[in-house]
Design a protein around this nucleic acid. Structure first.
Length: 462
RNA sequence: GCAGCUGUAGCUCAGUUGGUUAGAGCGCCUGGUUGUGGUUCAGGAGGUCGGUAGUUCGAAUCUACCCAGCUGUACCA
C-alpha cells in the first residue's frame, strides 16, 4: 500500500450515504405499496429526467458567493445552467407545460425518484433522498384535494400504521390572506409572519410569539431577529392559529368529501402554512404522532412525512394559461426510518446455499450440484478459492447463508452429501462451551443421498 | 451564513499539575484446527495525537490562527 498525502480519502461528501441491500429492499417494498394505492385511484406512472435547466425549476442562477443556493448546479457546454432536481413538482410543471396538448386531462401521475438538495444535512436529513409524488393537473376542486388526503391515509394504513399513529392536518391559504387584509399587514411582513408560524412544531406557540415580536435566542445562544409586531397584532395571529371556527367555500367543499370518512384522522388546523409561496388553496401535511429516534438513539423532531397542496400558478410560469394543479409529496426514506422503528418492516432475506470446496478435483460435481439448485430458483454459490473449510464456514456464517453442502472424496464415492443447516447449528452452539465438543457435534449436519439433494434442501429450507 | 461544542487506532474512548517508547475495549488479520461457524487461547497489523506556527530543555497536554465534524439556528423552490 502506498501512503501519500495526495491519496484521495475514501469518504463520502456530507449528507450522502450508500444504500445497502437492506435499505434497497425496504425502498422497493414501501414504494410498491404506495404505487398500488395510487393506481387504485387512477394515477399512472411517469419518470422525468433528473437534470433540468435551472430556470425551468424556478431557481435563479447560482451566484458567485454561494454557487449552491440550495440546489446542485453546473454549466453545460453552451454555458446554460443545469440543476439536479430538488423535488418532483417543479419538473412535473415543466413536463405538463411542454406536453400539454397531448395529455389526457385531468392528468394524474405518480412518480418515485431521488431528489437532491444542496443544504446542510441534519439528523435524519440527507442531501439525496427518495421522494414519492402524486399530482393531479387540470381540476380546480377541493374535492380532489380531499381525495388526495384520503389516499394518503390509505397509503399509511396499508404500510401498517394505525389511525392513532398519524394525522393529516389541513388548512387553506385564503384564510390567511383574509387575516392579513383585516390586520392591514404589508406583503413583506406577510412572508415573515408565515415563516414564524411555520415553526410552531419546533418552537411551540411561545417561540412563534417571540419571533413575531422582538426575536429569540436558540439553544446555542445565537440570536434571531423577530418580525417586530405589536403585542396586540401578535396575539391576534396566535389566537388565529388555533381558531377552528373559521371556514370558506374551499374548506366546506373539502369537508363534504372527507365527512364520508369519519374514522380517518384528518383535521383542520389553521396553523399549517407550508410552502409559503407557491401554494394557492388547500394545503395539507401528514404527521407521525409517535416518537422517532435516529441511529444514535437520539430523539428527533420528525416533522411531516408527507405534505402538499394546491398550486394553481406553477404551470403558467412557462407562459401558458393558469392550469389548476394539486399534489402530495411523501418523504419515503424518512417514512421507512419510522416504519422500521415501529417494527412494521421486517427485513426479508432469501436463503442462500453454499457448496464448500473440499478439492478442486471435485469441481465438475460442484458445478452440476449448483446447476440443479439454481434451476429450482434457489440461490447457490460455489466456494472457489479456499480449501480451508473453517474459513469457508465462517464466510457462510457472516454472509448469512442458510445451508452449506459438503462433498469431499468420501461422500462422492458413496454417492452422498453432507448438508449443514447453519441456523440450526447456531442454536446448538448456545449449549456447547467446549471447543472440541462443538467441533465433534457437527451441529445441524446430516448426510443425505446425492440423488435426494433437492428434496433435502427444500425440507431444510421449510 | 450565524452560534456553541468536539477533533487521539477502522469504531467507542482513556491519557494525571507539560516529563521516557501514546494506551484500553471492540473490530480486523494469523495460528492452535489444510474436513467444521460459535466460545476460548496465543500472537500480529494498525497513529504525522485534525493542520500550521509559537511558548518550552521537553507539547496529545499551553497559546494563536486555520481546517473538519457534530448540534442548534437562518435561508429553502
Amino acid at each position: 500500500m502506498s501512503k501519500n498525502k495526495n491519496n484521495p480519502k475514501a469518504i463520502l461528501p456530507k449528507g450522502f450515504k450508500d444504500s445497502d441491500i437492506e435499505i434497497l429492499n425496504l425502498r422497493k417494498r414501501v414504494t410498491k405499496i404506495i404505487e398500488n394505492e395510487c393506481q387504485k385511484y387512477g394515477f399512472i406512472e411517469l419518470d422525468t429526467a433528473t437534470i433540468e435547466f435551472t430556470e425551468s425549476i424556478g431557481k435563479f442562477l447560482p451566484d458567485v458567493e454561494r454557487p449552491s443556493g440550495g440546489v446542485f448546479s453546473f454549466q453545460d457546454d453552451d454555458e446554460k445552467w443545469l440543476s439536479l432536481r430538488y423535488d418532483l413538482t417543479a419538473p412535473l410543471a415543466r413536463y405538463v407545460a411542454q406536453n400539454y396538448q397531448n395529455l389526457v386531462k385531468p392528468f394524474k401521475r405518480y412518480q418515485s425518484g431521488l431528489v437532491w438538495r444542496n443544504e446542510k444535512p441534519g439528523p435524519g436529513r440527507y442531501r439525496e433522498f427518495l421522494q414519492f409524488d402524486a399530482d393531479i393537473v387540470g381540476i380546480d376542486s377541493a374535492l380532489i384535494d380531499a381525495e388526495l388526503c384520503i389516499m394518503v391515509c390509505d397509503i399509511l394504513t396499508k404500510l401498517g400504521l394505525n389511525t392513532s399513529q398519524f394525522e393529516i392536518k389541513f388548512s387553506n391559504r385564503e384564510i390567511w390572506k383574509n387575516l392579513f387584509l383585516t390586520l392591514k399587514i404589508e406583503k413583506d411582513t406577510e412572508t415573515k409572519i408565515l415563516r414564524a408560524v411555520d415553526k410552531k412544531d419546533r418552537l411551540g406557540m411561545g417561540g412563534v410569539k417571540e419571533l413575531l415580536q422582538a426575536g429569540r435566542k436558540d439553544t446555542s445562544g445565537d440570536y434571531m431577529d423577530g418580525v417586530g409586531l405589536s403585542d396586540d397584532v401578535a396575539d391576534k395571529i396566535i389566537s388565529f392559529m388555533s381558531d377552528l371556527n373559521q371556514s370558506n367555500a374551499q374548506i366546506e367543499e373539502f369537508n363534504s368529501y372527507i365527512s364520508n370518512f369519519s374514522s380517518y384522522p384528518i383535521k383542520f388546523d389553521p396553523s399549517v402554512v407550508r410552502g409559503l409561496d407557491y401554494y394557492t388553496g388547500m394545503i395539507f401535511e401528514a404527521e407521525l404522532l409517535i416518537d422517532v429516534t435516529n441511529d444514535k438513539e437520539e430523539k428527533i423532531v420528525f416533522g411531516s412525512i408527507a405534505g402538499g397542496g394546491r398550486y394553481d400558478k406553477l404551470i403558467s410560469r412557462f407562459g401558458k394559461d393558469d392550469v389548476p394543479a394539486t399534489g402530495i409529496s411523501i418523504g419515503v426514506d424518512r417514512l421507512i426510518m419510522a416504519l422500521k422503528q415501529l417494527d412494521l418492516l421486517k427485513a426479508e432475506t432469501k436463503p442462500l446455499v453454499v457448496i464448500a470446496n473440499i478439492d478442486d478435483q471435485n469441481m465438475p460435481e460442484y458445478i452440476s450440484m449448483a446447476r440443479e439448485i439454481r434451476r429450482e430458483g434457489i440461490a447457490c454459490e460455489i466456494s472457489f478459492d479456499s480449501k480451508n473449510l473453517g474459513k469457508q464456514l465462517k464466510y457462510c456464517d457472516r454472509k448469512g447463508a442458510s445451508i452449506v453442502l459438503i462433498a469431499g472424496e468420501e461422500e462422492i464415492k458413496k454417492g452422498e452429501i453432507s448438508i449443514k443447516d447453519l441456523d440450526k447449528g447456531k442454536q446448538v452452539s448456545k449449549d456447547i462451551t467446549d471447543r472440541d465438543k462443538w467441533k465433534e457435534a457437527k451441529a445441524g449436519q446430516q448426510t443425505i443421498k446425492r440423488s435426494e439433494l433437492l428434496i433435502a434442501l427444500k425440507k431444510v429450507l421449510g
